[in-house]
Design a protein around this nucleic acid. Sequence first.
DNA 1: GTCTATACCGCGATAGAC
DNA 2: GTCTATCGCGGTATAGAC
Lengths: 202, 202
Amino acid sequence: MLQVVAKRKTREEILELSVPLFARYGYDGVAMRDIASTVGVTPAALYYHFPDKENLYLDVVAYAFEERLAVLKKILAGGGSPRQRLEEFITENARVMATDKNFIRLMQWAALDSNEARLQKLSHCVFKDLFIAIYHLASELDDRYDPHLLAISIIGLVYFHFEAGATRHLMPGYLPHQDDPQVVAEHVIQLLHDSISETVTY
Amino acid sequence: MLQVVAKRKTREEILELSVPLFARYGYDGVAMRDIASTVGVTPAALYYHFPDKENLYLDVVAYAFEERLAVLKKILAGGGSPRQRLEEFITENARVMATDKNFIRLMQWAALDSNEARLQKLSHCVFKDLFIAIYHLASELDDRYDPHLLAISIIGLVYFHFEAGATRHLMPGYLPHQDDPQVVAEHVIQLLHDSISETVTY
DNA sequence: GTCTATACCGCGATAGAC
DNA sequence: GTCTATCGCGGTATAGAC
């Protein structure tokens, strides 16, 4: 029993401490030695908890996304009009991305992954559920738009403000308050407000 | 003279053939051995043309972007109303991203670069000019919006449709025609059409 | 300009003691 | 569960012949 507790503890600690490393440096940019020294164990110890680097990485990504995505999915499944849910989703999404820098960077790394197996696994297990929820919301919002394209646009509008974060700071017109998730959310909501007219009634 | 021509030729061939490699696998994912064998020389030969991998990479990225960005900047600097230039820019931007898969992936890698020096150099030398042009266009379009945020939104809307490409294909509602740049451009233009009202006259 | 040959290092992973 | 020790590979980069 004590062993199980200790095991769970170390395993979770490895996951927890690996998140910012993989978020910042990507799969190739993090060595097992880096993780080990961050956690305070030797590299060999990692192989007791995970079969190899590949599986450790996948577990780290799933661990990092689990909680965040659950919150977003809950909002999309909640009550209120489609328009209301859209605005709540945008606001919460901006809040998550501004709060948790690791979240967006892990998504970026995932999008670039040239390893087909990893890409499929992440797409299917991690992102698909959320996309389906947004897709359904998009279908309810305005039937003049292809819901797939509209879903991508809604995600991309928020996502890109934070994805571009590092480079955006070097560009003209940058002001610190543009990093405020509330400001970004209001901008996106305003932009979508006039574009989308409710066409489905309940 | 013959030497100079030969030198230029090989150097350019290295740049040309390295683009798809770095685009697909990123800086860490490409070995000098890979480039060498693709070009058909030995790794040592690369070090005659470039001082190290870092500089080779930077030259490759600049080489890949030069032509594409010039076209986009030209459109933004061209005549017509702000709204017209916006639509032309969106259309051409979608066309470039659909045609040249390397373009967007190199941008994605650049955005993730944890090497501060590389990030700054790329931001400043490669992207800044284009952003300034879009920023000015945004200022002319609709003064209800913060031009910096609007510029980011305009870029992000097109960008994300193609950035999400690989994962999007695994998501519900995907249809092959959504990869058509004309379809994406029309979707984005429609979306922005009702959001933006011309407020500056000429 | 390009080659052969190689130095040198850091990587993932494993064996076996404790 | 974690350690020490190590193997084998593949990475960048260089020296020096041609």
